[in-house]
């Protein structure tokens, strides 16, 4: 068996939770792909006769104030939440990684300018900045993606900068330079593949944060609009019924959100173990 696979197997046997996280991740992706096919009811169809029912055989998770099936809504919402967070994380990776690599590679003025941009973003409490960006760009799902991407960008830029900086003098870089490669080629073909593994850990941890952030924004009424099923907005709709004891409207989407984020975080920790067993905390 090849050593990488053996190492992965060793890490998985040491910490079975990581295996669970991978399984959970697969389940989330499957739900995102096939959710609408699995859902027993139309997530938008209201049926006021059946409003606010507790979980039962017909309605596994109960129904909300408009009599919509919560189970179907939670399942269908997976796609939108996963889409938002994947898109946001991909975007912040695509923005942050090149900036960070350039800052770490060229240093000097480039580094200072990029550092200034990153520091400016970090000077705000991130969620508040995201609120401001969505308010300014307009209240839409796409703008939630942009806002989430912008507030996550500094993490990638800083990490890419540090990792690039650490490898600037490495032997393989020197070898590539001596064999006549230009900067662009060294960065793309040698530096980037080398800093990718630690960045993937960040991506996985960030997916969870991106979902939380997007759900938080829709919870306060930004981005996703009712009646679209989305976990954050469903919790918001359910929040009015908590004080009168109708718990299932908010509970199930909240749990789904929590499980998804938990899964991404465990996955990140697990990836970190696989990539660097020493950094375990």
């Amino acid at each position: 068996m090849n050593p990488t696979l053996r190492h992965i197997r060793h890490v998985l046997s040491e910490n079975p939770v990581t295996g669970l996280a991978f399984a959970g991740f697969a389940a989330i992706l499957l739900l995102a792909l096939f959710g609408p096919l699995i859902a027993p009811y139309d997530p938008l169809a209201s049926n006021t006769d059946q409003a606010l029912r507790a979980p039962c055989w017909e309605y596994w998770f109960g129904t909300d104030h408009l009599g919509r099936d919560i189970f179907s809504r939670v399942i269908v919402a997976t796609r939108l939440d996963v889409q938002i967070s994947l898109a946001a994380v991909a975007l912040s990776f695509a923005l942050g990684a090149p900036l960070g690599i350039c800052a770490g590679w060229y240093g000097g003025r480039t580094d200072r300018m990029i550092g200034r941009v990153v520091d400016t973003i970090m000077a705000f409490p991130l969620f508040v900045l995201a609120m401001g960006i969505v308010a300014a760009l307009g209240n839409s799902v796409v703008n939630i993606v942009y806002a989430t991407a912008i507030i996550n960008m500094p993490f990638y830029a800083r990490m890419a900068r540090a990792e690039t900086n650490a490898r600037r003098e490495a032997g393989f870089v020197e070898a590539a330079r001596l064999s006549g490669n230009g900067d662009a080629r060294i960065l793309a073909a040698h530096i980037f593949p080398n800093i990718l593994p630690p960045m993937m850990v960040q991506v996985s941890l960030n997916l969870g944060y991106a979902i939380l952030n997007a759900a938080g924004l829709s919870f306060i009424g930004l981005g996703v609009r009712p009646p679209t099923p989305e976990w954050g907005i469903m919790v918001a709709e359910g929040s009015a019924y908590i004080v009168s004891g109708e718990w299932c409207v908010a509970l199930f989407p909240g749990l789904a959100l929590m499980l998804a984020v938990f899964c991404f975080n465990l996955l990140g920790d697990g990836l970190r173990d696989i990539i660097d067993p020493r950094r375990r905390t």
Binding site: G216, V235, G254, L257, M258, V261
Partner: peptide, 12 residues
């Protein structure tokens, strides 16, 4: 702890 949506724990 880092997985908890703060608005959801509040409601709980």
């Amino acid at each position: 702890g880092v997985s908890l949506p703060v608005f959801f724990t509040g409601l709980l």
